[in-house]
Design a protein around this nucleic acid. Structure first.
Length: 756
RNA sequence: GGGCGCAUAGUUUAAUGGUAAAACGUCGCAUUCACAUUGCGAAGACCCUAGGUUCGAUUCCUAGUGCGCCCACCA
């Protein structure tokens, strides 16, 4: 063993060893009778490359999987990727643009061919990156959301909903992305704060010289106005309710209606209603039976108005409306305003609400079933606060627009292939479609429901809630028992890590710099199971790298001692020193604590404890003491035995966190291997209650403190240890070290680093 | 507008109803020892502000401020 651990020398070799062993696959595990433990990966998009969120999330899952595997469970961690409709279509379109081509030029069939080619070439990059991180995923079960079987699952789900009358086609106001040419669901919007203008416009009241003043940020939509609404309790407008006003420019006569949705205090307190181009107005329109007049089309141009407006782009129409209003003297004022504008979560362009014929899934009953399951604790959220947030959304759920007008995706069966499903419609089936559903497979029986889903909070509704209702609907059972929402990784300044802002950190660069183990450990060290966000600090990875090197050298030392003393046939541990009792007690306590922490998702806490123990208890104290215990024939055998068993135990406890280096050490420590097997399937340590010894811990603590006092004293007085001893023996009455045993102990300690 | 989280050393984070711990950084000291990716030591914190509960608050409560995030039909 070299004196410094070099991750690059070992990591790929060890990963290969694991893959060849077959132990990532539950069917090859030695204990076939063990209970199942399964996790379905949150499938990364095929367009993606590994980011810090992935690195953290998958490290967490890998820790859990490795822990339970060692505990004898039949563990399955299933990998896969998501076809990611809009995202992928965008990427390939961009690629085509380099050759000055659009998807329209190619036509649907050719374009889809291109996407499949693209996916073949780049789609698995991210999975290979997970291998570099050390993830013990069962590659033999890798799934893709567009696989043949998965297509069957989506089809089956649609037919099921159709039969039950839960899915319907309807013309409703939906969010339309003009750039991507598709409908989007409510969850696929991002609200961005923007500076805009609020225009105050006078609408003349019919047969009078009076006006009603309305305010709008989108004046072009007045071309589709079919009412003006006021709050029924608004005294200013009470007498106007029921009167007719004339929408300027187009001179349409519309009614003034009363509706609670109007906020008296915003703008002028009177709202123009455009049912075909606003979500809220569409609801109002339905309540009051208003006409829906569509004036903006799918490509963002004006329709159904007149020759002057038809065919104009939204922004041109807006300018024209404003200038005409000015001419008419009906524009009261332009006000600067900051407001939230809905953007497409994929391309960032402004979303236009518009009337459109789409497929909708009725979600109310589905959501109610999820709420019941949550109430019955069939699915448990960790940390608990996410439960409330999930419930809030489920209680206020709206029907889900599941059709998309993009080409890349699952075809909607009834449609003669023109529309596709929302990517999330297929992702919602992930926990069982990956196991073979709708076929009743062995895997489905064994591994459904999974134990936990590990995820970022931003897809709590988009994905997790929808998986739960799909699971209940199709499998009759929640798809996972626990939802663990891990913290979000922020940049050091507390801002979001994002590629576009250039604040992202590439985990692969970190792996290159510090090794996969240090990257994993450094990440986990920074999190707290309860926390919402973490400011990523690279210094933690430096500490971790040093820690791993420390572990490496501790092992090297023990290996040396084992070679010096080959008698490992100790039948009893007597006589046993205080230090021996202490370390045995401590390591058993540690085993208990780490096991509990992992199972409660307290991984950061566990990592900190392992770091502290390995370095500052085992290495700093026991290893130093072992040096003189090793010189005494009476204590030598025990010491070597305890060193061996302790490091073995520590390697097991550390393995889920830093799998590569622990596996390598395990392999190198001659005589430590059990049945010549790999650490990945070594049996997780059991706590030996008999060895937990409170008294020994307290006694040892006293000696530690004494030694620390001596160190301090020595530093302050700037004298050597020899001078302390000499001073002591010269004058017994002035002695600092009165007890001869302590003097003796400290003399021994000079041979170590405890006092030097 | 509603909700959630956070606020502690220069920095990133712990813990705690009895004035606080670690890592990195800083400053000393050590060096043929498994490890300089090391060991030992030191300096460094009015624990965000204001009230309240309490014998006592950094910790519990309330309000405020700042930062981060989520939800919402502010047109």
């Amino acid at each position: 063993m070299e004196s410094a651990y070099e991750p690059k020398k070992y990591e790929s070799k060890i990963y290969k060893l694991w893959e060849e062993s077959g132990f990532f696959n539950p069917d090859n595990l030695p204990n076939q009778d063990g209970p199942a433990y399964s996790i379905m990966i949150a499938p990364p998009n095929i367009t993606g490359s590994l980011h810090m969120g992935h690195a953290l999330e998958n490290t967490i899952s890998d820790i859990l999987i490795r822990h339970y595997r060692m505990k004898g469970f039949k563990t399955l961690w299933l990998p896969g990727t998501d076809h990611a409709g809009i995202a992928t279509q965008n990427v390939v379109e961009k690629d085509l643009k380099k050759q000055n081509l659009t998807r329209i030029d190619l036509g649907k069939e050719k374009f889809l061919e291109k996407i499949w080619e693209w996916r073949k070439k780049y789609g698995d990059i991210i999975l290979n990156q997970l291998k570099q991180l050390g993830c013990s995923l069962d590659w033999s079960r890798t799934r893709f959301t567009m696989d043949e079987n998965y297509q069957a699952a989506v089809k089956k789900a649609f037919e099921h909903y159709l039969e039950k009358g839960m899915i319907y086609q309807g013309e409703k106001v939906i969010n339309w992305c003009i750039k991507d040419q598709t409908a989007l669901s409510d969850l696929e919007l991002e609200y961005v704060e923007e500076k805009g203008k609020l225009w105050h416009i006078k609408y003349p009241i019919k047969d009078s010289n009076d006006f009603v003043e309305v305010a709008t940020t989108r004046p072009e939509t007045m071309l589709g106005d079919t009412a003006v609404a006021v709050n029924p309790d608004d005294l200013r407008y009470k007498k106007l309710i029921g009167k007719t006003v004339i929408v300027p420019i187009i001179n349409r006569e519309v009614l003034i209606i009363a509706d609670q949705m109007v906020d008296k205090d915003f703008g002028t307190g009177a709202v123009k209603i455009t049912p075909a181009h606003d979500m809220a107005d569409s609801d109002t329109g339905e309540r009051h039976n208003l006409k829906f007049i569509k004036v903006i089309n799918e490509v963002g141009k004006i329709i159904n108005v007149n020759d002057e407006f038809n065919g104009k782009k939204i922004i041109e129409a807006r300018e024209l409306v404003i200038s005409k209003l000015k001419e008419l003297g009906l524009l009261v004022k332009e006000e600067e305003i900051t407001h939230n504008v809905a953007k497409c979560y994929r391309c960032g362009s402004t979303v236009e609400p518009m009337l459109s014929k789409q497929w909708f899934l009725k979600t109310k009953l589905l959501a109610e079933k999820v709420l019941t399951a949550i109430e019955k604790n069939e699915v448990v959220y960790k940390p608990e606060r996410w439960k409330k947030i999930a419930e809030e959304w489920l209680k206020n759920i709206r029907d889900w627009c599941v059709s998309r007008q993009i080409w890349w995706g699952h075809n909607i069966p009834m449609e003669g292939n023109s529309n596709t499903f929302d990517t999330w419609f297929s992702s919602a089936l992930w926990p069982f479609a990956t196991l073979g559903w709708p076929k009743q497979t062995e895997d489905l029986k064994k591994f459904y429901p999974s134990n936990v889903i590990t995820s970022a909070r931003d897809i709590l509704h988009l994905w997790i809630s929808r998986m739960i209702f799909s699971g209940i609907e199709f499998m009759g059972e929640v798809p996972f028992k626990e939802v663990y929402i891990h913290p979000t990784i922020l940049a050091l300044d507390g801002k979001r890590m994002s590629k576009s802002l250039g604040t992202g950190i590439d985990p692969l660069v970190l792996i290159e710099k510090y090794g996969a183990d240090a990257t994993r450990f450094g990440l986990i060290l920074q999190i707290n199971h309860d926390q919402q966000a973490v400011r990523f600090d690279e210094r933690s990875l430096i500490s971790s790298k040093n820690f791993i090197n420390k572990l490496w050298n501790v092992s090297r030392f023990i290996q040396m001692k084992c070679e010096e003393n080959k008698s490992d046939s100790i039948s009893s541990l007597k006589p046993i020193t205080l230090a021996d009792q202490w370390i045995l007690s401590r390591i058993n306590r540690l085993t208990d604590s780490i096991t509990k922490k992992i199972e409660k998702y307290e991984l950061g806490e566990a990592a900190k404890e392992l770091y502290e123990f390995t370095w500052h208890e085992f290495a700093d104290w026991y290893l130093e003491i072992s040096k003189f215990q090793n010189e005494n024939p009476e204590t030598q055998n025990n010491t070597v035995f305890i060193l061996k068993s302790s490091i073995l135990n520590l390697l097991k406890l550390l393995h889920p966190f830093i799998p590569f280096v622990t596996e390598e050490i395990y392999g190198q420590l001659t005589g430590l291997k059990q049945n010549n097997d790999l650490l990945i399937i070594a049996e997780w340590s059991k706590v030996d209650e008999k060895l937990i010894n409170q008294t020994a811990e307290e006694e040892f603590e006293k000696i530690k403190n004494l030694i620390i006092k001596i160190r301090n004293w020595k530093m302050e007085q700037k004298i050597t240890f020899k001078e302390i001893v000499d001073y002591n023996s010269e004058s017994e009455d002035k002695a600092i070290l009165t007890k001869p045993e302590i003097k003796d102990l400290i003399e021994k300690l000079t041979k170590t680093k405890l006092i030097s």
